[in-house]
């Protein structure tokens, strides 16, 4: 009973932390998406120089641990005399990190859509920009949803790392509660874990809903076809 009351009393603080966690997730994924998609096109359609620069960027960000990136952007920038808030540093470190991963998701999708689609739309007299907007993007976004769901889950969970910069997201709120109440660490951490689970689970469900909604007819798997027939 006492345990339940502890959980109940800590919920407001944890939910407040959860909002910060969601905010961070959105910021990281958003920045990662914008930079990632531009870089993906740059890597496929750009000239040799662009391709090389992006390839180096992507390899560097993927090779450095997230925590090291966070420290580099926060403490490193401070020692260079650039004043960045913890939140901005976190966004840059984790958003750019995600962009490196996302650029690879989108690059793969662009390549699997193939040059033929671009040729066909250019042959109609569409500019390269219009071709990307009306022909290539709608296809690569659909193709990217499954891998993107994965990236969403990783980024959401990794927001807990910014705890190290003193940002009061959900994990840090949990730590505060434990410190304040001399409470049961196991209990609080389990509560935090359950909330993470619910967030990732709901998000993944949402993306698989999107995947189904935007599925291109004619590409159903065998099971789905048989399922339709059974109904």
């Amino acid at each position: 009973m006492e345990d339940l009351i502890l959980i109940w009393n800590s919920l407001p603080a944890l939910l407040k932390g959860m909002l910060v966690t969601l905010e961070l997730t959105l910021a990281f994924l958003g920045l990662g998406f914008l930079v990632g998609i531009v870089f993906a096109f740059g890597q496929v359609y750009g000239n040799k120089f662009t391709q090389t620069v992006i390839a180096i960027y992507e390899k560097v960000f993927r090779a450095i641990p997230a925590l090291v990136l966070l420290f580099l952007f926060y403490f490193g920038s401070a020692s260079l005399g650039i004043k960045l808030s913890a939140f901005i540093s976190a966004c840059l470190a984790m958003g750019l990190r995600s962009s490196a991963y996302q650029s690879q998701i989108f690059r793969g999708a662009i390549q699997s859509v193939g040059k033929e689609q671009m040729m066909a739309s250019r042959s109609l007299g569409m500019s390269q920009f219009k071709s990307i907007v009306y022909v290539i993007l709608p296809q690569i976004l659909r193709l990217s949803i499954p891998s993107w769901t994965n990236e969403f889950a990783i980024v959401l969970k990794d927001t807990s790392l910014v705890y190290a910069l003193g940002i009061t997201e959900m994990l840090r709120q949990g730590r505060y509660i434990i410190a304040r109440t001399y409470g049961n660490s196991l209990l609080i951490y389990i509560t935090v874990a359950v909330i993470y689970f619910i967030l990732v689970f709901t998000g993944s469900k949402f993306f698989s809903f999107l995947e189904k909604k935007f599925k291109i007819p004619g590409y159903e798997t065998k099971e789905e076809k048989e399922g339709v027939r059974a109904v």
Partner: peptide, 10 residues
């Protein structure tokens, strides 16, 4: 008109 049709798949 292309050998592999190149219709917009979506």
């Amino acid at each position: 008109v292309f050998q592999h049709f190149n219709l917009f798949a979506h």
